[in-house]
Simulated scan of single mutants.
Amino acid sequence: MNKTILGLNQQENLILVDKLNGLLANFQIYYQNLRGLHWNIKGKNFFELHVKFEEFYTDSQVKIDDIAERILTLQGKPLHTFLDYINNSSVLVGKGISNDIEAVELVVNSLSELLKIERDILKISDEANDEGTNSMMSDFIAEQEKTIWMLNSWLGR
């Protein structure tokens, strides 16, 4: 069995790099959605949501960097073009959204999609004994589940 320099199975490692690149692409779409929501939000909840969307995109920037650095740690190459992001993402692109409810629903739906991807990576990283990726996914999942709960509470659900 061939091992990487980190002691991980090479084949499992390649799968994890591919999955992490998919997560990276989806986070980039999510990030850009948040920028658009931050810029374009209107209405009575403007001040609250303008700040909240900035908080979310700032957090996403950190996660994007963490994901890319994890890919590099696993000796992979992170995707880095907009074309790659679009071709490797399932998070919906939100264009021209200025309504508060529609904006928050986009964030909830995007986070739900990210959770699916992260849970898939968590399962694979656990089976591969990749504690670094496993820990990162666990942290992302716990935080995003809480954010979904809070946003759903804001939506009155």
Rank of each mutant, 00 (worst) to 15 (best):
M1L: 11
M1N: 11
K3E: 14
K3V: 13
T4L: 04
T4Y: 05
T4M: 02
T4F: 04
I5V: 15
L6V: 09
G7K: 05
L8I: 10
Q11D: 15
E12I: 01
E12C: 06
N13T: 10
L14Y: 08
I15W: 04
I15C: 08
L16K: 03
D18L: 05
D18G: 01
K19I: 02
N21G: 01
N21Y: 05
L23C: 04
L23W: 00
A25M: 04
N26C: 08
N26G: 05
N26R: 01
F27W: 13
F27M: 13
Q28D: 10
I29V: 12
Y31T: 03
Y31F: 14
Y31N: 10
Y31R: 05
Q32F: 14
L34D: 08
R35A: 07
R35W: 13
R35T: 07
G36Y: 03
G36E: 12
G36H: 07
G43S: 07
G43M: 05
K44D: 14
N45C: 09
N45F: 11
F46L: 07
L49K: 03
H50L: 06
K52F: 11
E54T: 02
E55A: 06
F56S: 03
F56M: 12
F56W: 10
T58R: 09
T58A: 12
D59Q: 14
S60C: 15
V62Q: 12
K63A: 11
K63M: 13
I64H: 04
I64L: 15
I67A: 02
I67N: 00
R70Y: 04
I71C: 00
L72Y: 09
T73A: 12
L74Q: 02
Q75P: 00
K77D: 09
K77C: 07
L79D: 05
L79Q: 08
L79H: 07
T81M: 02
F82Y: 14
L83T: 13
L83W: 08
D84T: 00
I86V: 14
I86S: 09
N88D: 08
S89E: 05
V91C: 03
V93Y: 13
K95G: 06
K95P: 03
G96Y: 11
G96T: 08
G96E: 14
I97Y: 08
S98Q: 11
I101Y: 10
I101D: 11
A103Q: 01
V104Y: 00
L106K: 10
L106M: 12
L106C: 09
V108F: 03
N109W: 02
N109C: 04
S110V: 01
L111Q: 09
L111Y: 07
S112W: 08
S112D: 15
S112I: 08
L115T: 00
L115D: 04
I117L: 12
E118C: 05
E118M: 12
E118H: 05
E118G: 05
D120W: 02
I121T: 00
I121H: 01
I121A: 01
K123W: 11
K123P: 02
D126R: 12
D130Q: 04
E131P: 02
E131N: 13
E131K: 13
E131L: 12
G132T: 11
G132R: 06
G132K: 12
T133Q: 03
S135M: 10
M136K: 06
F140P: 00
I141Y: 01
E143M: 08
E143D: 15
Q144W: 10
K146T: 13
K146D: 14
K146R: 13
K146N: 13
T147Q: 15
I148G: 04
I148R: 05
M150W: 02
R157M: 14
